[in-house]
Nucleic acid binder design. Structure first.
Lengths: 158, 158
DNA sequence: TATTGTTATACTCTATAACTATA
DNA sequence: TATAGTTATAGAGTATAACAATA
């Protein structure tokens, strides 16, 4: 792997203190992992974001849950959830059913097609996961997850 | 710290396989860290995003760089950069100067006020960094950064 | 009165395509 | 022709405020 032809337009910039900031490294890594996720799905002719995958898993595992409960689990506002569900519903992956016990709420569920798609998505996610952890040993991967969880729970916002 | 009153609206949802997915843990951690960053600045009456901080550092360390060079360093399109610079310029933190050697480019630089603000921002970022790493030993923090870099460089998109 | 879902609105980040000025 | 910056436009994620239906 040779260096790209370092013309006048691609000088290495001085990044100063940034490389040692945990938040910065975290952000760049998250960005690269996101891009890998997108590339994995695009290469397979599928379209899904990590957020949508998480949402589908949540609905599959908690069939009948309300939009409020889902929004709370995702940490987003209920109004933010509406267009996201609209899209997944338009793709035939998910349905809003009227709750029998509370007329205000929608009972969310995957369609048969949604379950089938989720199975496929899951194998794509596993391939993606394998790749992003490819330079890490099993132990290192476990350590990384533990350390990330420590960081997450040591935060103001939690 | 007592648990919140677990009413009918906050049942613990089944998150299935998600807690073991590195990508998922990374995303949630990044989200929590982002929220902590925002809270730190808001508490200090300052307004800045992690991305803006990174941009200011880059400009401070590479005075006179062009918008193209900056966009490339940030991994975003040049058109995306325009409104971001507009805002920072409107806040008086940064200026676009005409390049003496190439009339097409703008030479970016911080204003004196920008340097002063950046000094303040830097100390806020350091407080934020200290908090998010508060549950980690020095060694663990170093390990975490190393593992994150390994993940980042083991990605398709790199 | 309070809650759920929706709509209207607004802001930010992101991109592509086309335009202008300059090289 | 090619590059830099801008503008126009569009899509997605995020929020707040107000509204209708239901509890």
């Amino acid at each position: 792997m040779s260096r790209p032809p370092a013309g006048p337009t691609s000088p290495k910039l001085d990044r100063g203190m940034l490389p040692t900031l945990l938040g910065y490294v975290l952000r760049r890594t998250q960005s690269a992992v996101f891009a890998d996720f997108a590339a994995t799905f695009q290469a397979a002719g599928a379209a899904l974001t990590p957020g949508e995958f998480g949402l589908l898993i949540l609905v599959a595992r908690n069939t009948g849950l309300s939009q409020m409960a889902l929004a709370r689990a995702l940490g987003i506002d209920r109004s933010t959830l509406v267009p996201i569900l609209d899209r997944l519903q338009a793709r035939g992956l998910l349905v809003r059913r009227r709750s029998a016990t509370d007329g205000r709420t929608h009972a969310l569920a995957l369609t048969p097609s949604g379950y089938k798609a989720l199975a496929r998505f899951t194998s794509l996610v596993q391939a993606h996961e394998k790749r992003i952890a490819s330079r890490l040993s099993k132990t290192e991967t476990r350590t990384l997850i533990e350390l990330l969880e420590k960081v997450r729970t040591g935060t103001r916002s939690l």
